[in-house]
Structures are given as structure tokens and as C-alpha cells.
Design a protein around this nucleic acid. Structure first.
Length: 862
RNA sequence: GCCGCCGUAGCUCAGUGGUAGAGCGCAUCCUUGGUAAGGCUGAGGUCGGCAGUUCAAUCCUGCCCGGCGGCACCA
């Protein structure tokens, strides 16, 4: 018996696929239904990690399956190649970022190809290719013309370590998402994309994405954060401060509680606050105090509410004689709503905390059900539940929703304000002060202002001789690059030296894949055939970054006429991480898995350092990371066990959406499976004569098992439950082993031949190389990649005779066999005739007999 | 605090309103010309807890406990 040798087999089949060019997507004219499978493209770090293996293996299962189902599959690959790691490498090691990046791409391409993915490599590109980012510049200018790009001075998030601006989405708990540094606020001239124009549409669109995880939809919903309310102005009671003659504009979602108003509040960086501070040193000191507070989550959480009474008062909108004091308060955010609020302490916890601290009035205006108006009081907790309005003049007696509507219409009738919808989502700041990115294609002219570079002068290419030896923007300090002439007046001009956020690069690459050499950014015909992506696979960490930006850009480009699709990804799957146990010395230093030897002692385990025998602490199971040294290099696994075993294990051990734990035992198990599968094919005669299997129980059992397997595998792949599918493959292999080829009857051999033919096709999405070898071994025609997915016969998935357990009062007391589909009445008769059962019923009176067809019988007796 | 996911064998996980499963690990034995290997057999589970619905609950419902994730001074 020849042992399976992946080192020879796997490269052999990869070459065969490449030579036959089997994964090239056919043109739209092929007439076959399309299927666009895509995994989030990698950053070319230069090294493949297990997370990549899992991500691309998952996508590959679906792509190969759909190909077998007869679809015209597009499954491309590219590189998200701009960004900071290249600049850091340049700074640390003096290499050229371009050379470093393309070098890494070459290395990673080799490793990815080794995975045996069904990729159409003819479409490959990198976002740092001039041909790509030049097209990006072209559509950027189109969006500018359409008013979706604007430039303004604004307070931005500044990452002091990476020395660049960050988008709101890239600030996590007050820290830069990449550097982890505490983010500072700076005023800068910034480029923005008007994503807020699409806030409503992006929110509504989520409802149509029924093949997205609920979790991701919820996260986007929260992020967009739509709230409906009222925007209105408080008139100042005394002469209004300069510039506020129109009053103090506030936003509220609770206009129903207007009669519970206690004070008006403004953010410390509200223009009015700044104006007051200019004349009032105490106010200025207070504002400075507010700014000192950090932005980290812990600090926000514990920050006490503090306020400063400005001495100004405003009039209640429904009662000119009712004066409300104006406070500056640290809990009010300038960049939400209008940066000013009206406070109703009885029904808002923040307002209540504040009012209690500063002795401001607390008037309840919503009466909870069952409470009495004369006795209801608010203590330390604001009441935010449902109820009837009281203490509120013309709103009295209304429920909350009716009162909101009434208050809004009164305010609108007075001309004091308007119902308004407010979003948490802010416009997307896209400019980055970096040299290794897509240049923003504009020039600054002294006479003409900011001017777009004409399309025939695109791409605005990065110079080849950027100096990355110092931190900061290499493009800005280049000696000559930014000096140019104005395209409009031919006068002296300066190029924009900001580049685009790399999330811009990744928010349209999927559309470019449909025709990566198009002279336009997007070939509309190709995009309209292929888009949207049918199945997108990637990490959940992009739930609100990449996935939201891509949805926005797709809409914007669609509205600009470049493609029809509004949603980029109609199906989304977010896979879990690959984790591994961690190991440390007693002294606390992390150890690599390879340095540690683990021995089992009964059900517990003991770990020591291989070389010294020094005891090792086995730590938590955590995401593979270099810092904790709990990584396993894919290429080492490929070397020992082969690519198929690695793919199989990484797909088999957990549901794809959950984290999976890498273990050497697990991959060894997958490797044994590969070998046992090969044994079954290798022990089968290459050619088998047809035989009637009707009278052969073993043959029939194999036949039923394989039909059940086809059904289960089809469902498992359709529903992304690959691990369950693989569990079924293991079970089926046990069935095959029970009905060996050695000494088999002609009927069993024939049944095995048919089963093996199907089996080779069923394993092909998971272990494609092994599948080819097996397919060839049993004389399959052509390659298994070209073979259609096997069909199953429902009748053959069921047994002709069923063993029905028989319960008495819910406890199992025996079993009987009955023909499949036997009627309850007949089964009941069989049961009551059964001596074993009747013996169990002696002395009991049968009350009821429940027969569930083909499942079970329960006798209720007393 | 709000929302979501998870809890089944020692470990990682399938599964179903009706007989509790796989891989790994563990134990016994066989093989020692598949050998830094292969095979047979086996032990091991109050299906997180309590209650309800049902003839029947690991599965449905409610409450509770434990773990993980997301959001959170957004008016």
C-alpha cells in the first residue's frame, strides 16, 4: 500500500490547475449564472499567518463549491498595499517602501499560491500600482465635482506617534487604532468625504442585507446612530450675546419633556462658551479644566459632571416669562447635535446628576403607569420609561409619542424650531500626512485656489526618491515634487502633499476586480455583470470601518453612473480568529510552542522546555500574536503535514464564525484523515464491473450513507457550517472502513466505486489536492475541479426499515422495527403485539399511545 | 447600563421536541516490512442551574448563574 505523499502530490495538481488555467473567470458572455466570491484582500506584510489560511480557505470552499454547481465564478486576489508598515520598515531599516512592498507581495503570492486556492490570478493588482491609484484619483475628482468631497478647517484626531490624522472610526477608546497612542485634538485643514449625505440610505440599506450577520448590521446601525427629535432656539432674556441674536439653538430627542426644563447647557468648546471665556477669566479657567480631562474610556466613565453658571438666562419657548440659566457643562459634546441642550433632570440621568450637584430644580413631567401625580417623585434615578405627561399645561394627559408630536408642531408653528433627524455618524476625514499613499490629485494656486489636476494628467504619481528616514510626511519634504504650475492659469502652484486614507483604497477594489485593466475606474458592463459580491469573507474587526466605507463609496460611485450596484457585498461572512495556547517561563517570559514539550498525565497536562526540562506555565488560549509568541508558521505545517491537512484542520475544528484553537494534535488528526481517505481509494480496484446491489445489505448501506452524506455536505456548505460537514466526512469514512474493498462482494465494490466517486467531489472544496489524486485513482474523467457536484436521491437517504424506540411513560423500554412510513395505527398494532413490550405493560392500563411517524412510540399507562 | 453570542465527554466542537455524536486526549490489547507509524476494543456525559409548556425538553418559554463580544456622557 503506497503512503500518500503530499509533497509530491500537492505541487503536481497545482501545476495542473495553472496549466489548464481552470480558475480564470469567463466573460459575461458565457451565459452562465455568475458568482462573485471574495475574501478581504491582505496587507502584504511579507508573511502568511494562520488567520490568512483560515480566511482564504473559507472563501475557497464556497468558490470551489459554486464552481462545481455550474456557476461562472470570479474569485480574485490583490494587495492592500499602501500604509504605514512600509514607511516604518523604511525608517527602521532604510529600505525603499515601494521595493519593500513589492518584495513582500512576491513572497506572499508564493505562499498564497501554495494554499491551492481557486484564484483567478490574471486579475491581481496592488493598490500601490499607479494604474490603480490613478483611477482612484479620477473618481475622487468626480466625487469632488459632485459635492461629495470638501475641504475645511476642523478639529481632527491627531495621532502623535504615527504623526497623522485619524478618522473617528479609527479612534478606539481615545487611542489610535494602529499605534495605540492617546489621540490629540488639532485644528487642521482637512479633506472630507460627505458620508453623512448617505447616512439615512446606509441605514435603510442594512435592512436589505439579510445575508449579513445581525451582529455587524447592529454595529453599523449603532455607528450611524440616527435619532429623531427637535431643533429649536431659546431666545435670550437679556440682550443676546453678539452673534446669538437668533437665540441659543439646541437639539433634543425629548421635546415631550420641555415643561420639565431646568436649565440650558452648552459644551465647553461651544462658540458661546468661548465668547464668554474671552471676557470672564473664571469661565476660561473652567473650560481649560474641562479640556484637561482625558479622552480614554476609563476617564470618561469616571469623569465627574462639572459645570459653570454663565449668568446668562434664556426664555422657555412656551413661556417667555420662564427664565432658565445657561450653564457650561463638561458632559455636553460639541460635535453632536448643536453642542447645546435643554436639560430635563427628571427624565435624563446626566441632567439629573448635574442638577443634584448644583441644586437645580427637578420637575417630573412623565408619570409612570400606576403612580399618583400628587406623590410621584424622582430620587437619584431619572425616570426614562413610558407614561403619561403631567405638570405640562397643554401636553397633560398625552402619552410620550403624542406629546413629542404636539410639542414639535407647536414649536414649528411659532417658528422657533423644526423637527430634525440627527446622526452620530460624522463625515469621513480622508487626508493623511503620509508619503506612502495615494496622492490627493489637486494643486494649490495662489490665484485660482484649490484646483483639480486634469484627468489627462493623471495619475499624480508618487516620486521614486522619497526620504523616509525621518518621521512625518515624506511627500511634503521632497525637494521638488510639490512645485508645479496651475493647470488653470499656468502660474506657480504647489501640489497637495496629503494622501488618501488607505481605507479609500480598499473601498472600491472589489469593483475594479471585475475589469482590472479598464481605462476607466470601473468598466460598467463588467461591474454590472459581476457586482455585487455574492460572498464576502473577512474579519469582524472591519464591521464599521472597511465595510461601512465600502458601502458608502459604492453608493457614491453608483450615483456617479459608474456601476449599478448600491450594495457592494450582498452576502457577508465574518470569521473568527485563530488562537493558540500561550506558554511562559516561571519568570514570565513568553515561549514559542516549538520550545515547549507537553506530556499528558491522565487528564491533566504538564509542560516543560524541550531543551532544559524547566517547567512551563500553560496560559490562556489567545489570538495568535507575535508579542505572545503563540504563533504557528503555516509554511512549517505545510511542510510536515501538507496543505490539505492544514486547510482541513483550520476548517474542521470550530464553526467558521467562532474562534478556532490551533493544536498540533488537531492538525495531526487531519493528517491521519487524509491518509485514511487515501487508503480507501488506494485499496479500491481501479476499475469495477457494474453490479446489481439490490440484494446486498452492505452495498445498500454504503449507498445510503453516501446519499445522506451528499445531502448533508450540500446543506453544510450552503449554510457555512463547514465544521459540521467535515464531521460528516469523518463519520462517512468510518462507514467505508466498515465495508472494506478487500474481500468485498461485486455488489459492494460497485457501491463503493460510486460512493468514492462522490466522495472525491465532496472533499474537493476542503482538500482539493487530495481530491484530485483520489479522483484520478478511481478513474474519474478529467480533473475533479471540472466535475459537477454530486446529486443525491432523497429516497436513498432513508432506510427502508426503521428501528423505533418504544417508551412507556417517557422512558425507553424497548424497540421495534417497522417499515419506513408505516401508519401510526399499524405501528400501534405492532407494538401491542410485541411480547417484550406487553410484558412491560403488565398490570398497567394503557391511557394513550403516541406514534410519531418513523421516529418513536410512547405509551402512556397507569 | 443597553444589545448580541456562547455554556453538550478531560479538551475543541457537531447534533436533535422522541436511541447523546466526531476529532483529539486517555486506557487495554494487536501489529513491529506503512514504523518519529498503523489497527482493534473500551472507559468517560443529571447536554450550566431552577421553573414552565408537552405524552415526552439537552432542544421551546421564563428567570438565574458563568464566559465572550459590541455600544455607551450622542441630549
Amino acid at each position: 500500500m503506497a503512503r500518500y505523499n503530499p509533497k509530491e502530490t500537492e505541487p503536481k495538481w497545482r501545476n495542473a490547475w495553472a496549466e489548464a488555467d481552470v480558475f480564470r473567470a469567463e466573460p459575461p458572455s458565457s451565459g452562465r449564472p455568475k458568482y462573485y466570491a471574495l475574501e478581504m484582500f491582505p496587507y502584504p506584510s511579507g508573511r502568511l499567518h494562520m488567520g490568512h489560511v483560515r480566511n482564504y480557505a473559507l472563501g475557497d470552499v464556497k468558490a470551489r463549491y459554486m464552481k462545481a454547481k455550474g456557476f461562472n465564478v470570479l474569485h480574485p486576489m490583490g494587495w492592500d498595499a499602501f500604509g504605514l508598515p512600509a514607511e516604518n520598515a523604511a525608517m527602521e531599516r532604510g529600505v525603499d517602501p515601494r521595493a519593500w512592498t513589492y518584495d513582500n507581495i512576491a513572497k506572499m503570492r508564493t505562499e498564497l499560491k501554495q494554499l491551492g486556492l481557486s484564484i483567478d490570478w490574471s486579475r491581481e493588482f496592488a493598490t500601490c500600482d499607479e494604474a490603480y491609484y490613478g483611477q482612484q484619483q479620477a473618481w475622487f475628482l468626480d466625487l469632488w465635482k459632485r459635492g461629495l468631497v470638501y475641504r475645511r478647517e476642523g478639529v481632527v484626531n491627531w495621532d502623535p506617534v504615527d504623526q497623522t490624522v485619524l478618522a473617528n472610526e479609527q479612534v478606539v477608546d481615545g487611542r489610535g487604532w494602529r499605534s495605540g497612542a492617546v489621540v490629540e485634538k488639532r485644528k487642521l485643514n482637512q479633506w472630507f468625504l460627505r458620508i453623512t449625505d448617505y447616512a439615512d440610505d446606509l441605514l435603510e440599506g442594512l435592512k436589505t442585507l439579510d445575508r449579513w450577520p445581525d451582529k455587524v448590521r447592529t454595529m453599523q446601525e449603532n455607528w450611524i446612530g440616527r435619532s429623531k427629535g427637535l431643533r429649536f432656539s431659546f431666545p435670550f432674556s437679556d440682550p443676546a450675546p453678539a452673534g446669538f441674536e437668533g437665540g441659543l439653538e439646541v437639539y433634543t430627542t425629548r421635546p415631550d419633556t420641555l415643561f420639565g426644563a431646568s436649565f440650558a447647557g452648552i459644551a465647553p468648546d461651544h462658540p458661546l462658551a468661548e465668547q464668554i471665556a474671552a471676557a470672564d477669566p473664571k469661565a476660561a479657567a473652567f473650560i481649560a479644566e474641562c479640556r484637561r480631562g482625558g479622552a480614554s474610556e476609563a476617564e470618561i466613565e469616571t469623569a465627574e459632571k462639572i459645570g459653570y453658571d454663565t449668568g446668562l438666562t434664556v426664555a422657555h419657548p412656551f413661556d417667555p416669562d420662564w427664565k432658565l440659566p445657561v450653564w457650561i457643562a463638561n458632559f455636553i459634546l460639541m460635535d453632536y447635535g448643536t453642542g447645546a441642550i435643554f436639560a430635563c433632570p427628571a427624565h435624563d440621568q446626566r441632567d439629573l446628576d448635574f442638577a443634584r450637584k448644583y441644586g437645580l430644580p427637578v420637575t417630573p413631567v412623565v408619570l409612570p403607569p400606576g403612580e399618583d401625580a400628587s406623590s410621584f417623585q424622582v430620587g437619584a434615578e431619572a425616570y426614562v420609561g413610558p407614561g403619561r405627561i403631567f405638570n405640562s399645561r397643554f401636553l397633560d394627559g398625552l402619552d410620550i409619542e403624542a406629546a413629542k408630536a404636539e410639542a414639535i408642531s407647536r414649536i414649528e408653528a411659532q417658528g422657533a424650531g423644526k423637527g430634525a433627524t440627527v446622526f452620530r455618524l460624522r463625515d469621513w476625514g480622508v487626508a493623511r500626512q503620509r508619503g506612502w499613499g495615494c496622492p490627493i490629485p489637486v494643486v494649490h494656486c495662489e490665484t485660482c485656489g484649490v484646483v483639480a489636476v486634469p484627468k489627462d494628467q493623471l495619475p499624480v504619481a508618487l516620486p521614486l526618491d522619497l526620504d523616509f528616514s525621518k518621521p512625518g510626511n515624506a511627500l511634503d519634504r521632497h525637494p521638488t515634487w510639490k512645485t508645479t504650475t496651475c493647470p488653470t492659469c499656468a502660474g506657480p502652484a504647489r501640489r497637495e502633499t496629503d494622501t488618501l486614507d488607505t481605507f479609500v483604497d480598499s473601498s472600491w477594489y472589489f469593483a475594479r476586480f471585475t475589469d482590472p485593466t479598464s481605462p476607466e475606474p470601473i468598466n460598467r458592463e463588467a461591474a454590472d455583470y459581476w457586482m455585487p459580491v455574492d460572498q464576502y469573507v473577512g474579519g469582524v474587526e472591519h464591521a464599521v470601518l472597511h465595510l461601512l466605507y465600502s458601502r458608502f463609496i459604492t453608493r457614491a460611485l453608483s450615483d456617479a453612473g459608474m456601476l449599478s450596484a448600491k450594495e457592494p457585498f450582498i452576502g457577508l461572512f465574518t470569521q473568527g480568529m485563530v488562537t493558540h495556547e500561550t506558554y511562559r517561563r516561571q519568570s514570565g517570559e513568553w515561549l514559542e510552542p516549538g520550545e515547549v514539550e507537553i506530556t499528558a498525565e491522565g487528564n491533566s497536562r504538564r509542560a516543560v522546555i524541550v531543551e532544559t526540562g524547566e517547567p512551563v506555565m500553560i496560559g490562556d488560549v489567545e489570538k495568535m500574536s507575535k508579542s505572545k509568541k503563540n504563533t504557528v508558521a503555516p509554511e512549517e505545517i505545510f511542510d510536515v503535514y501538507g496543505v490539505d491537512a492544514a486547510r482541513l484542520f483550520v476548517l474542521s475544528d470550530s464553526p467558521p464564525e467562532r474562534d478556532t484553537q490551533w493544536t498540533t494534535g488537531g492538525v495531526a488528526g487531519a493528517w491521519r484523515f487524509v491518509n485514511r481517505v487515501w487508503d480507501e481509494f488506494d485499496s479500491q480496484p481501479a476499475t469495477v464491473a457494474a453490479a446489481d446491489i439490490a440484494g446486498d445489505e452492505a452495498a445498500k448501506a454504503v449507498q445510503r450513507a453516501v446519499h445522506r452524506l451528499i445531502k448533508a455536505m450540500t446543506e453544510a456548505i450552503e449554510t457555512f457550517r463547514f465544521n459540521s460537514g467535515i464531521a460528516r466526512l469523518y463519520e462517512f469514512l468510518n462507514t467505508l472502513k466498515e465495508h472494506k474493498a478487500e474481500g468485498a462482494s461485486p455488489a459492494l465494490l460497485a457501491a463503493r466505486a460510486e460512493a468514492l466517486s462522490a466522495f472525491a467531489r465532496l472533499i474537493s472544496p476542503f482538500t482539493p489536492h487530495l481530491a484530485e489524486e483520489c479522483w484520478a485513482r478511481v478513474g474519474g474523467s478529467g480533473m475533479v475541479v471540472h466535475a459537477p457536484w454530486p446529486d443525491f436521491d432523497v429516497a436513498l437517504t432513508e432506510d427502508a426499515v426503521r428501528i423505533l424506540p418504544v417508551q412507556v411513560n417517557g422512558k425507553r423500554r424497548g424497540e421495534i422495527s417497522a417499515p419506513a412510513g408505516a401508519e401510526p395505527a399499524d405501528v400501534e398494532k405492532l407494538v401491542l403485539d410485541d411480547p417484550e413490550i406487553t410484558r412491560r405493560l403488565e398490570g398497567l392500563t394503557i391511557r394513550k399511545v403516541i406514534v410519531v411517524k418513523d421516529r418513536i412510540v410512547n405509551i402512556v399507562a397507569a
